[in-house]
C-alpha cells in the first residue's frame, strides 16, 4: 500500500539488534552532552521520516513510568455539584491510541502526498515541554514545575486535579484521573478531582544521566536529545537536507520538542485524528506573551510620574 508498510515488515526482523547498537551510541552521545549542559535546556528532536509507528516508545514509556501511574481509591467520593466529571482510566490502562493518565505518549497517524506518492507517516505525540509552559506558570497551586533542563512536570502528591493545566495547554496534553491525590485528604466533595498526568520526560532518568525511555527504546533513532542550540542546528540541517519542515521551534513561543517532517505540518494537521487526548499540529501563538508584562513594568513609573506632575503643577500654581 505504501512504502512505509514494506519498511515496517523489513524492520520487524532486524530492529532489535540494529536498534540496540544504534541506541547505545546515541545514548552515550546524549548522556555526554547532558553532562556538559548546566544551563541550556535539553531539547528532543523527532525526525518523523524515520518513525515506523512500531510503538516501542509507547511501551517503554509505560514500563518505565508504571510506578508513577495512579492507583485510585474506589468508590470515588461523591462530588458536588453533580456536574463535576469523574474521569476514570484505571480500567482502561491498555489504551495506547491517545493520551491518558496511563499513556503519556502515543503514535498519531497521517497520510500525505510527497512527490506524487502517497505515504503514511507516524508521529510520536506527548507533552511538548514548552519554553514557558502555561501549565506550570498558571497552575494556581504550584503542583507543576519546570526544571532548568527544560522539562515540565506535575507533582502527583501536590496536584488537586482541577484541570486548569489542561485548559491552558495549547495542546490539551494533561489527562486527569479521579480518586487519587491530595484532594481526598482535604475536601473531596467540594474541591479538586484527582491528579493530572502527562509526560515528565523521564526526569528521574535524566537526573541519573540516562535518556528518556522513549528515546532509548526507539529502534529507528527517531529521537535525539541534547542542548537546545545543538538540537536546533541539527533540526535545521535535517530540514534542509530533506527539504522538510519544523514544528515546535516557535510554537507557544518555543518548545523543547522539535519535529522535523518531509511534509508541511498544515497537511499533517489536516490528516491526523484530533480530539480528546489527540493533540493537533496547528501553529500556536505564544500564550504567555500578552503584553501585560509591559504594563506591569510601566505601572510603577506611571504612578511616580503622575505624582511628580501633580506636585510640579501645584508648585507652579503656588508661585
Amino acid at each position: 500500500m505504501t512504502s512505509k508498510l514494506s519498511r515496517r515488515a523489513f524492520l520487524k526482523g532486524s530492529l532489535t539488534a540494529a536498534g540496540s547498537v544504534a541506541a547505545t551510541t546515541s545514548i552515550a552521545r546524549a548522556a555526554t552532552s547532558m553532562a556538559h549542559t548546566k544551563k541550556e535546556p535539553l531539547v528532543t528532536l523527532l525526525d518523523i521520516s524515520k518513525c515506523i509507528g512500531c510503538e516501542e516508545c509507547v511501551y517503554a514509556c509505560q514500563e518505565v513510568n508504571a510506578n508513577k501511574y495512579p492507583e485510585p481509591q474506589k468508590p470515588f467520593p461523591k462530588m458536588v455539584p453533580d456536574r463535576v466529571p469523574v474521569q476514570d482510566w484505571s480500567d482502561k490502562r491498555d489504551v495506547t491510541d491517545r493520551l491518558t493518565p496511563y499513556n503519556w505518549l502515543f503514535i498519531q497517524h497521517a497520510s500525505a502526498t510527497v512527490n506524487g506518492e502517497e505515504i503514511e507517516l507516524t508521529i510520536p505525540r506527548r507533552c511538548m515541554h514548552c519554553d514557558n509552559p502555561p501549565c506550570v506558570k498558571l497552575c494556581p497551586w504550584g503542583s507543576a514545575k519546570q526544571e532548568e533542563n527544560g522539562l515540565s512536570r506535575i507533582d502527583p502528591d501536590i496536584c488537586l486535579g482541577g484541570s486548569k493545566c489542561k485548559k491552558v495547554c495549547p495542546w490539551d496534553i494533561p489527562e486527569r484521573q479521579t480518586g487519587v491525590g491530595l484532594y481526598l485528604d482535604i475536601l473531596p466533595a467540594f474541591a479538586g478531582n484527582g491528579v493530572m498526568y502527562k509526560c515528565d520526560r523521564c526526569y528521574n532518568r535524566l537526573e541519573k544521566g540516562e535518556v528518556p525511555a522513549c528515546i532509548e527504546a526507539c529502534p529507528e533513532d527517531v529521537q535525539t536529545i541534547g542542548p537546545k542550540s545543538e538540537i536546533l542546528e541539527k533540526a535545521h540541517a535535517l530540514a534542509k537536507e530533506m527539504n522538510g519542515y519544523i514544528y515546535g521551534e516557535h510554537e507557544n513561543g518555543g518548545t523543547n520538542t522539535i519535529y522535523v517532517s518531509p511534509v508541511p505540518f498544515e497537511q499533517l494537521n489536516q490528516s491526523i485524528e484530533k480530539g480528546k487526548g489527540k493533540p493537533h499540529l496547528n501553529t500556536v501563538k505564544n500564550m504567555m506573551a500578552d503584553g501585560t508584562n509591559l504594563a506591569m513594568l510601566i505601572a510603577p513609573l506611571a504612578g511616580v510620574v503622575a505624582a511628580f506632575g501633580k506636585f510640579y503643577l501645584s508648585s507652579k500654581e503656588d508661585k
Partner: peptide
C-alpha cells in the same frame, strides 16, 4: 495583570504624592 498594574500605579502615585506634599 491589568488590574495589578493600575493598583501599583495608584499605590505609588499616592505614596509619592504623600512624600512630595
Amino acid at each position: 495583570y491589568a488590574a495589578a498594574s493600575v493598583l501599583i500605579a495608584l499605590v505609588l502615585y499616592i505614596l509619592f504624592d504623600f512624600i512630595f506634599n
